[in-house]
Design a binder for these strands. Structure first.
Lengths: 207, 207
DNA sequence: CAAGATACGGAACCGTGGTTCCGTTTGTCA
DNA sequence: TGACAAACGGAACCACGGTTCCGTATCTTG
């Protein structure tokens, strides 16, 4: 039944079958780092070729570590969730008791800010295949728990619309991420997503 | 200078060089209709092959009427803008005088509702190439004018945040469209974009 | 109704990019 | 250090889909 102890911080591997050879462990990390860069630049359209090149490795090596492109993307998504979960926990523990709304808003603004610095890669969260997403699922759940706590605290303090729910968070993040990524087809100017976020937060808050 | 009389309702063609042959005119329309259906189903990933098949025509015919996929997509986008411009004008003229906010909200809700019924196709507005977008540009401007009027009326009546601007509309629509398109990677359930829209409208409105 | 221009059909072409395969290299362990 | 398994490199393979080409069919005009 419950098997929540899997997927700690880094490995995300069963680690049962004999440990990786030293060079393999090093290379796996290189692949992930390279992938992070390449996907950050080209999003889902990134090419495996580029990942290999950027990592200074051959295609074969990349595929030795990740079954296919989806699996690699999934690992990156997992890392995002991992980071966000940590940050959510931080806001929850550090700020929430004194200033519930502030903690929620702080987390949301930090999360969107991070997203803005890395839009293409983060958009993959929404375009990834179910199989790819699977490797990130349990980490995502942990993030959701912290989010839930932040929201509940703000609502208990009467500072947030009672009908806002954790389930609205992905919708919101997805919407903002999309607005960030898209540019004006004529001028190429980025959209003012911060403004949109202000409107939404204003709509959620209760004074 | 001003050359606003171009692009009426249907043709969007110079119509100077001898008119199309009867069958060609008919087929052009068929291509567009088929494209609307196929792009509605598969979005930007739609295949020219399918468009031709659905229209009951050969590939050659499709390419005779539209330089490339971009041009075809551009024509569809133009039609969307055309329709939206008409609807915006309607709300502006019919409702705005008595109830400025109501007109704005009504238009936004109608526009998003339409979008929801045709998400994949409408998302192309944001993913289309600049060349493809060009054919829709003047129609877009007309839409923007009506939108501007709706907003100004609501603001003059003190019913809307003074810092909301027409330029925020594409951002909003893009964001909502994205939320509509994306589904939960696990359950496949659609996101509750209506909720998000409520929050935003609540944030924009001034009572 | 004949001639010529216009339009059509769809098979073939070609670039792109994910994935595989296998000969070579490298780490590990006794 | 020698032997074997593990890991690597990257060329080759293959599917997919946009685009082109050209022989054929259809409309228009005199």
């Amino acid at each position: 039944m419950a098997r929540t102890e899997t997927s700690r911080l880094e490995p995300s591997q069963d680690a049962v079958e004999r440990p990786l050879r030293a060079d393999a462990r090093r290379n796996r990390e290189r692949v992930i780092e390279a992938a992070a860069e390449v996907f950050a630049e080209h999003g889902a359209g990134a090419q495996m070729d580029d990942v290999a090149k950027r990592a200074g490795l051959g295609m074969g090596t990349v595929y030795r570590h990740f079954k296919d492109k989806d699996a690699l993307a999934g690992e990156l998504v997992r890392r995002h969730f991992e980071l966000l979960a940590q940050r959510a926990q931080h806001w929850r523990e550090t700020v929430s008791p004194d200033d519930p709304w502030g903690a929620f808003e702080g987390f949301v603004r930090e999360a969107t800010e991070r997203m803005a610095g890395d839009v293409a890669q983060q958009r993959m969260i929404w375009t990834i295949s179910p199989e790819g997403f699977a490797v990130a699922a349990s980490t995502r759940d942990r993030l959701a728990e912290h989010g839930q706590a932040l929201i509940a605290a703000a609502q208990d303090a009467g500072q947030m619309r009672a009908d806002f729910s954790v389930a609205d968070m992905p919708t919101l993040m997805c919407a903002l991420g999309s607005a960030m990524q898209v540019v004006d087809p004529e001028t190429g100017a980025p959209r003012d997503w911060q403004r949109l976020l202000d409107f939404v937060l204003d709509g959620i808050r209760r004074h």
